Simulated scan of single mutants.
Amino acid sequence: MNCLSFSELCCLFCCPPCPGRIAAKLAFLPPEPTYSLLPDPEAPPSARPRGAGRPGGPGEGRWKLQLSERAEFQYSQRELDTTDVFLTRSSRGNQVCCMYIRCAPNARYTVLFSHGNAVDLGQMSSFYLGLGSRINCNIFSYDYSGYGASSGKPSEKNLYADIDTAWHALRTRYGISPESVILYGQSIGTVPTVDLASRYECAAVILHSALTSGMRVAFPDTSKTYCFDAFPNIEKVSRIPSPVLIIHGTEDEVIDFSHGLALYERCPSAVEPLWVEGAGHNDIELYSQYLERLRRFIGQELGQHA
């Protein structure tokens, strides 16, 4: 999420605006891609991607992940080689790049992770490997339209279509049932996560530095949801049937702590939240209570909810 000047805000909201325009102004900062997809040289000819070398082209077949230095990958080639990457098409016609990392051989759960802004799968790959191994879960993630190797342009509607595509790919390609999936959204990633979780039941939902709505980020005194608001998490979170863990830093400088509190109060299926004293928007993972809370939630509490 990026800050707007007063003049930009005036221009944005005086039209009246459409949700897509609010979303584009407030949220999307796709980075220069930090990875590329190459045809798997070890795949038999029948399994090689058509349109090889063109991630925006047909996605059938087997790909290899090639990371740039900017991805800052912290593991060995062996871990990279065990990472599945593939392209699948969304209902809105965009190619969505997906990644599946087998972090834990006997994992009970797979985390469907919707990442934050200004990063892509290449930059997140090291974090996913570390997180999955520490919480004993496999990790499945995807890039939003216009991010990484995913085609199209980022928009609110595309966010919802992108996660739908990822959800169905996880279930059909790997045969993973909904009761074995934990939906995890971070920052802007909480928007597609809340939307999907309000429509499908799963093992659990984790909302990390979540926003209530686009208008409430731009105008903190906003107390109602307008028809032109974007990202209305506050209106959907009450419809989530699965257990919800909300995590927020008390000193979040991008999405104020009050957003986490408001979502917790509105969500009837919320469990004990994690308020990280002194944490900002991008450093919660550095606090020891972050992993401690995730392990307790996944390893102990989910069994009680089952």
Rank of each mutant, 00 (worst) to 15 (best):
R239S: 15
S155K: 15
I255A: 03
A262F: 04
G152A: 04
L261V: 01
G152Y: 05
R239H: 07
L183Y: 01
E235R: 05
H259D: 11
Q186V: 01
V205W: 01
A279R: 00
E201L: 03
P273R: 14
F219I: 10
F231H: 10
D221L: 10
T225P: 05
F228V: 02
P220C: 11
L274D: 08
I240D: 05
V194R: 00
G260V: 00
S187K: 03
I234N: 06
W167M: 11
R199A: 04
T222K: 07
S209I: 00
R216P: 11
P243M: 06
P273C: 13
R216Q: 12
V276W: 02
E179D: 12
A197G: 09
F257D: 01
R239A: 13
P220T: 06
L211D: 15
T193P: 12
S177G: 12
H168C: 03
R199V: 05
D162A: 03
A204W: 03
L183S: 05
Q186P: 08
S242K: 05
S151L: 11
I188W: 03
I206R: 09
H259Y: 02
S242Y: 06
Y174G: 09
D195G: 13
S180F: 07
A197K: 10
S213I: 05
P220F: 07
S151R: 12
K157T: 06
K224D: 08
I255T: 14
I176T: 02
S180W: 08
F257C: 00
Y226I: 02
N158W: 03
N158L: 04
Y200N: 06
A203K: 08
P220L: 12
D256S: 11
D221M: 11
L159D: 01
A169G: 12
P154E: 04
D162E: 09
L159E: 00
D221W: 14
L207C: 04
K153M: 15
D256E: 12
T250F: 02
D221N: 04
T250L: 01
N158H: 06
E265Q: 15
R216Y: 13
S223M: 08
R266S: 09
H248W: 01
N233F: 08
S242F: 02
P268S: 02
G175R: 11
E156W: 02
D252R: 01
I188F: 00
N233T: 15
I182E: 06
S223Q: 15
A230R: 07
L196D: 14
F257N: 08
A262G: 15
G185P: 03
E277Y: 02
T225N: 13
Y264Q: 10
E272C: 11
